[in-house]
Write a protein that binds this DNA or RNA. Structure first.
Lengths: 297, 297
DNA sequence: TTTGTTTATGCAAGGATAGCAATAATTACG
DNA sequence: CGTAATTATTGCTATCCTTGCATAAACAAA
């Protein structure tokens, strides 16, 4: 026979409120229904839980023993179901997002700020990691969604373009090109460039595109993180070609960010998620917020 | 809407066994039913708990979060219901009995020994207390059943006679009457008798019956407990009139227990329980065992 | 493409549940 | 002592739910 949650719920309500009628109001059913539910439960257990006349309701010895368990069961179920309904109806809930460092320090905080207004109380765990790690975090389920670079079009991953991030030329204001409103690739001297390590997903993406245009550049210095490259530029070691989002305009005095044309090369930033999986409402709302903003721009 | 325990149970089974078909075997329903249950739950929550194709079943982020709670719910409910069914079907369970001291040291242990054979594992808590306290313990629900003396026929109490306990004459073997096969009331000299305090339910019961027969006895010494009286008798302080069950024949060397006739006066021992209440199956079985034994004798 | 496996669905039947109205049981009050 | 008031129970019916069968659809592997 099927286990009868209604019966347990009825038992708790009747026992706690001390009567069928009061309990029936509380549960929004008729008192007839409660009588039946309790009878059914007692019949199933072959046990009397409540001794009752028309004047009073009283726990039996067994009922007294069962009541705390029953209360805990009813409480646990209603709490759990309530939480879930909250998730779906109001987008409540917590989720994890993986994100590459540049986005994590620029676009993501802004998005989170807007998200927090619409969904206060939701917690977001951020895994800030390299492009490869972002991909893996999503693939292995450590993060529901990722913000990163386009990957190898893995069978199980689905990528949606979030924005395009043009590569720009970064240098100190003392640099000969620092006053140009734009530079072209042929202006650049390989010798003074700080490059990103080929270990990086960024570098791979850049190289692939440069190759299409017959451009070939490799810097004198090689670092692994964009932030390190910026540091070297700031210290006057050299200049660098980095995604524009690496540093907002004017974020660091003495540094210049100059558009790079002929051709303009961009890296795509994508939202990554597992294919054929359902996002939690909280994460789903976040993704929609991210992408909607993107459309508007 | 009503909370759907079946759905939760289905969710757990499908998630844990990794498929609808396996889960359906486990729950002894068709796979169709499981599909429907899960669909209903998901529809109610407006939330997807399992991402599934015909080839695999996989938890969604929300499902992963919910699964432990769901498991705990299902476990708690099945455990609780199982315990209750055990109570009814096999008389499993623990209960409390209140009992007057003489019965607690004589008849009760024997009954418990027999009970333990039929219902191994059941724990019995014994409140050994005076007749008044036994009555109150039952009345106030501290004990489900009581073994004691007939009381004031309280509205809420129900008494069933368990046995009759004749008063007998207790003395040391040096006593002049010690070799008689019985004594009569007129043989007794008040001066050497040890009496029970009028605080005792025992004494009240005895006095009431003596009065009917025009016998009037009050001892020189007065004690509160039968066991104390026995002690005084054994020490040679005097003799006493006590219920036969106070001491089994030959239980203490040097002491004699002699039937007391003309008339024979007995105290009744009753099983006390609250009227209109249902005993736990464990306690009920014990009562029936007690009374059945009584009928057989 | 075919095949085998697994979940989903249309449909009909059976079962369970709720509500109404009336009844029975019990207490309180006149 | 009888009557009213309150409360749980029950008969009955309509409705809703659930199940199971048969079948379809989806998917992966050969």
């Amino acid at each position: 026979m099927k286990i009868d949650f209604d019966g347990i719920q009825a038992f708790v309500a009747i026992a706690e409120l001390g009567g069928f009628s009061k309990a029936s109001e509380h549960l929004h059913v008729t008192q007839t229904a409660l009588t039946r539910r309790l009878q059914k439960l007692e019949a199933y257990l072959d046990l009397r839980l409540l001794d009752r006349t028309t004047r009073y309701v009283e726990l039996t010895a067994v009922g007294r023993e069962f009541l705390p368990q029953a209360k805990s069961i009813v409480g646990e179920v209603t709490r759990a179901v309530g939480t879930l309904k909250d998730m779906s109806s109001r987008g409540r809930g917590n989720f994890t997002i993986a994100c590459i460092p540049t986005m994590a320090s620029q676009a993501l905080p802004a998005a989170i700020r807007r998200y927090a207004l619409a969904y206060p109380g939701n917690r977001i765990r951020i895994i800030d990691a390299s492009g490869f790690e972002v991909r893996d975090a999503v693939l292995h389920g450590q993060a529901e969604i990722g913000i990163g670079l386009p990957t190898d079009r893995h069978q199980e991953l689905e990528e949606t373009q979030l924005l395009e991030d043009p590569y720009m030329f970064f240098c100190r204001e003392e640099h000969p090109l620092s006053n140009r409103d734009h530079v072209v690739w042929s202006d650049l001297h390989e010798a003074e460039l700080i490059a990103i390590s080929t270990m990086s997903a960024n570098r791979l993406a850049l190289d692939a595109q440069l190759e299409k245009h017959g451009i070939n550049l490799s810097g004198r210095y090689e670092v692994r993180h964009l932030s390190t490259a910026i540091g070297l530029v700031a210290a006057g070691v050299g200049a660098a070609i980095l995604p524009s989002s690496t540093l907002e305009v004017g974020a660091r005095p003495g540094l210049r960010r100059i558009p790079l044309k002929g051709p303009t090369i961009k890296r795509k930033i994508v939202v990554i998620r597992r294919r054929n999986t359902t996002l939690s409402p909280a994460a789903d709302a976040f993704v929609r917020l991210l992408l909607r903003r993107n459309d508007e721009q």
